[in-house]
């Protein structure tokens, strides 16, 4: 993802809002990758030596755990980004319906 270019006219707050957003996205997407591609596929066999809720852990991540984490990720993003938006004054929550 490219960085903001210097020739912007509409002010500084929005640019740093965007870099905060990218940082948050990077963090959440690395969790997304780790639980599914990491735990569910690449590390599935070694993890199967452990158990979660009575199920081999690699199998559990592949067929259940990753789905729970996905749901949590979307709500965490929604909550964190709303806070960032309010901080930078770019939220649409207070604007009401057009």
């Amino acid at each position: 993802m490219e960085d903001a270019s210097p020739d912007r006219s509409d002010g500084k707050p929005k640019r740093s809002y965007w870099s905060e957003n990218l940082r948050l996205l990077g963090m959440l997407l690395s969790v997304w990758f780790t639980v599914s591609f990491g735990f569910g596929i690449l590390l599935h066999e070694p993890l199967n030596r452990f158990e979660i809720l009575g199920v081999p852990a690699g199998f559990w991540f592949a067929q259940a755990g990753s789905i729970y984490v996905f749901v949590a990720l979307i709500f965490v993003y929604s909550w964190r980004i709303s806070k960032i938006e309010r901080r930078f004054g770019v939220s649409d929550d207070e604007e009401g319906r057009a």
Partner: peptide, 26 residues
């Protein structure tokens, strides 16, 4: 499909739900 493919069918479970993370975030 899961009943007969077992672990291999995990691709559908993760694939068809993980896409919503991309949709919501990106």
């Amino acid at each position: 499909i899961i009943a007969f493919a077992g672990y291999d069918a995990s691709v559908f479970l993760m694939g068809w739900t993980g896409g919503y993370v991309l949709l919501a975030l990106l």
